[in-house]
Amino acid sequence: MQLTFPHRETWLHQVNPTLKIVLFSLWFLAVILIHNFNVMLNVAIGSLLLLPWSGHPWKRLLLYATPFLLVFVSTSTGMMFFGKGETDWFRWGLVNITEESFYRGLHLGFRALSMAAVGLLFGLTTRPVRLFYSLMQQGRLAPKYAYSFLAALRLVPIIIDEFQTLRHALKIRGMRKRGWFIGFYQLVHRYAIPLLAQSIRRAHRIAVAMEAKGFAGRAKRTYYYSIGFSYRDIVFVTYTLAVFGVAFLAGTYWPYLDIIDVR
């Protein structure tokens, strides 16, 4: 089973993964602290502009991005319809749209959109192997955690294969779904228990083998891939700073709407 799709390597793939995590975390923190609607909209645009560098073709990118629309709608409407506010626009039963709640809803939508774009970019441009090697080298993560992660990721295709086997086995024996609730309960027991039990057994065996090979030791070790920093890291840091700088300045001097604080 293949979990990755062919794609172009861009400069974002070469950015140090630990730096990427740190910057995206700061991005998250900054997004939480932005209460100005105009600045948030600019930041969301800045985040989306990064996506073409993911190295994946447009069509696939759009396919990946479809849940974003769902998140945008679901995040914003919840606040729009049921938020607090003074200036009434529309009232129907429990739904009460006010000017304040409408823009607060949109603000939350852009927040979610920005985080989704950045998160997708992280997923698409970071190879797990590079990520965990970098976390060991730059992030001081204990090797036993990093190698456990990598080993566990390798088990995913096996788990999926086992799931198929189970499905076929149950099908050929004529297992049928009974009722909604009982059906769900049976489904869980038929699939989850054997899958989890097998995975745990396998994990245990692999762990014993890994301990025997010295993966659990705390001694200083060498790495097959050495991951460092390059000029691309400076480019990436500059881009991030520029997005927030420009978003803040543009939002202050050329606001789209006269809303300073959506809270």
């Binding site: 995975s199 994990a203 762990a207 659990a216």
Partner: peptide, 17 residues
Amino acid sequence: KLTDILVTIVIAVVFGI
């Protein structure tokens, strides 16, 4: 121990999906 970590992470991977 490494065993604990690996089993925990394997469980987490199943639930992560």
